[in-house]
Design a protein around this nucleic acid. Structure first.
Length: 612
RNA sequence: UGCCCGAUGGUGUAAUGGUAGCACGAACGACUCUGACUCGUUCUGUCUAGGUUCGAGUCCUAGUCGGGCAGCCA
């Protein structure tokens, strides 16, 4: 059974925050027929843990109000975007919400564009999501996979263009010939009003003609722009005749080669929301000063349907972590990591490959709350959510990372003693598996000390320790090679201390893990540690200088034989060590005519309160 | 220094004019065939100054500190 997708969502306390309160009030007032939110990434990088907060908020809002949340690519800048990112983002979102908010995910019919309609006698465009019931109906009808895809702002270029023409006709927008440098100068400064462009008073006819010629490709990049006519003296600089369209003679990864003018965020985003019937447009704090512009565009077009509104919250900052697509791209480009999905990366792909369940990420971000306070969350909170999830989900196994050989001198070679191990003591009705104790076993190097520190519970000269699920052993003799290195520990096994035997209840202070030297298998195990050495890497002068040089250590470990059948969906706890999972990329489970190659990633260590 | 936003233990948050609570963390202890889990005890908080009020973390004013905004990025 796969632990990856069956981890039950923890009994989440009904979240409450200022945005949910607003939505709840709108629901109570019946302001909208249905709550519709959206998650609008730009396809210029992979999604990371910070996006998880936004995804869970937007999909949570939809889920809690029987609404919908559209996945929409905010792809209005073709020079920075790529189809690779469209695919990874789509997969990551679906992974994160799987089993939780699948029914809320808004897709549109493949290839669909907003349809012209009439509302209250006014022309309008609308592109609603496919009803989830329609999607599942197609499934059960046995037809091919429903032809659905995410939303793309670039699918609205035609409508956006029509709205721009409308704005020009209303005298609310004009074509400006200022160069980029001049535009900056004319804008003024936050504490100094700007100056009006000399092109501001062009006639509607002139603007219409020029805008048409912009679209027709008559002018080079940067020669002209379309600008909103608002107020060059506004204290909010985003209201100083902001740019609506710029000229870029490049093809678009989704829209093709039909355009050489592309809309800017502030113009495209609010209208994309409107076209999809979004009711609550939730974004991060840095867009707060853009909200008046969001409202201005919609209000000045006289649109017939209820308008969406923007609400802002503080994005996630995590200790010892970089949450910035630009900087993560740098880590990839400079090969500090092996790729966007390197298990040390805070990307959703990296976390997934590392073995962190989606349910743990959801529990983590849900517990954070939603506020307008710019904060930094300690990694311990995230790690706690991961351990919490995995403790309940993971199958226990025995594995030795740094082996030391132990010989049980009173056990004849070739004899095996059958033991029984518990798969997960957290289960209500735990299952078991057989384990074989043999004359030679491996134990963890850390679990033996010739000169033990105070309060050392493990194996020491003359001391006793329990081999978990087997019996108590006593260390009689330490064998070393010529160089003085320990080669073998000779012990006596107290077989009557096994479960079910007369002395089973004998207590020793320490219990350690082990594997049979004759039946164990070898595997590569990758031990990950945090990628940065300081709590706020983004705040340092050069974050590449605080990369942890020990973020990855690779060992060849000895694993109990049952692990040979592991699958990439399994989550394991190697007892007393931590949580591990098969690396889905580098493991070769069914290599023809060859031994399967097992590569395990350490997801996270167990908590260790025995400080060393 | 123009505009906008924010401030509750070490960290993240709750309390919507009426007992400052929860989680993480830390310390100690109990339990333990995982030094895990679980359980128990303890620790630390309303930025400052005024005002309104029977009563203020909450409302008002001023200040302090922090964040954001001057891309033809999103």
């Amino acid at each position: 059974m796969s632990a990856a997708n069956t981890t039950p969502t923890p009994p989440a306390p009904a979240p409450s925050d200022f945005i949910r309160d607003i939505v709840a009030q709108h629901v109570a007032e019946q302001r909208y027929a249905k709550i519709v939110t959206r998650f609008p990434p730009e396809p210029n990088g992979y999604l990371h843990i910070g996006h998880a907060k936004s995804i869970c908020l937007n999909f949570g809002l939809a889920r809690e109000n029987r609404g919908q949340c559209n996945l929409r690519f905010d792809d209005t800048n073709p020079v920075k975007e790529d189809i690779e990112y469209v695919d990874s983002i789509t997969a990551d979102v679906q992974w994160l919400i799987a089993g939780w908010a699948d029914q809320c995910l808004g897709f549109k019919p493949k290839g669909a564009h907003p349809a012209a309609q009439t509302v209250d006698g006014k022309p309008d465009y609308f592109l609603p999501a496919i009803e989830p019931s329609a999607l599942s109906a197609q499934h059960s009808a046995g037809s091919a996979a429903p032809a659905a895809e995410p939303f793309f702002a670039s699918d609205y270029f035609e409508q956006l263009h029509n709205y721009a023409v409308e704005l020009i006709q209303r005298g609310k927008a004009y074509v400006c010939d200022l160069t980029p440098q001049e535009t900056d100068e004319y804008r003024g400064a936050p504490d100094k009003p700007g100056r009006e462009s000399p092109y501001r008073q062009r006639t509607v006819a002139e603007n219409l003609d020029l805008f048409a010629r912009m679209r027709a490709g008559e002018f080079p990049d940067g020669a002209r722009t379309l600008r909103a006519k608002i107020d060059m003296a506004a204290p909010n600089v985003w209201l100083r005749d902001p740019l609506l369209y710029r000229i870029r003679h490049v093809a678009h990864h989704h829209a093709g080669s039909g355009w050489c003018i592309y809309p800017l965020y502030d113009y495209a985003h609010c209208l994309s929301d409107y076209l999809e019937g979004i009711t609550h447009s939730v974004c991060t704090l840095e867009f707060e000063v853009h909200r008046p512009l969001y409202d201005w565009v919609l209000e000045n077009l006289g649109l017939p349907r209820p308008l969406p509104h923007q609400y802002e919250f503080a994005k996630l900052n995590l200790g010892y972590t970089i949450v910035s697509k630009r900087r993560l791209l740098q880590l990839v480009n400079e090969q500090v990591v092996t790729g966007w999905d390197d298990p040390r990366m805070p990307t959703l792909s990296g976390l997934r490959r590392r073995g962190i369940p989606a349910s743990a990420i959801r529990a983590f971000v849900t517990g954070l709350g939603v506020t307008k306070f710019d904060s930094v969350t300690e990694v311990a909170v995230f790690e706690n959510a991961v351990r919490n999830d995995l403790n309940a989900a993971a199958q226990r196994r025995l594995a030795v990372l740094r082996p030391v050989k132990v010989v049980l001198t009173n056990l004849p070679a070739g004899e095996t003693i059958a033991c029984t191990a518990t798969n997960n003591p957290q289960d209500e009705h735990p299952t078991t598996r057989p384990l074989a104790l043999t004359r030679e076993v491996f134990i963890e190097a850390d679990d033996f000390a010739e000169v033990p520190p105070p309060k050392y519970f493990r194996l020491k000269p003359g001391g006793e320790v329990r081999l978990k699920y087997a019996c108590i052993i006593k260390l009689d003799e330490i064998v070393k090679d010529a160089a003085g290195a320990v080669t073998e520990l000779r012990c006596t096994a107290q077989l009557d201390t096994r479960s079910g035997q007369p002395n089973a209840d004998k207590k020793v202070k320490g219990t350690i893990h082990w594997v049979s030297a004759t039946t164990c298998i070898d595997a590569e195990v990758r031990l990950y540690d945090r990628l940065f050495t300081v709590p706020e890497p983004a705040a340092t002068e050069d974050f590449l200088k605080v990369v942890n040089p020990h973020s990855l250590e690779v060992v060849t470990a000895k694993l109990e034989a049952s692990l040979a059948c592991a699958t990439a969906d399994d989550r394991f706890q190697f007892e007393r060590l931590g949580y591990f999972t098969l690396d889905p990329k580098d493991s070769q489970l069914s290599a023809p005519n060859a031994q399967p190659k097992l590569v395990f990633n350490r997801t996270i260590t167990l908590k260790d309160t025995w400080a060393k």
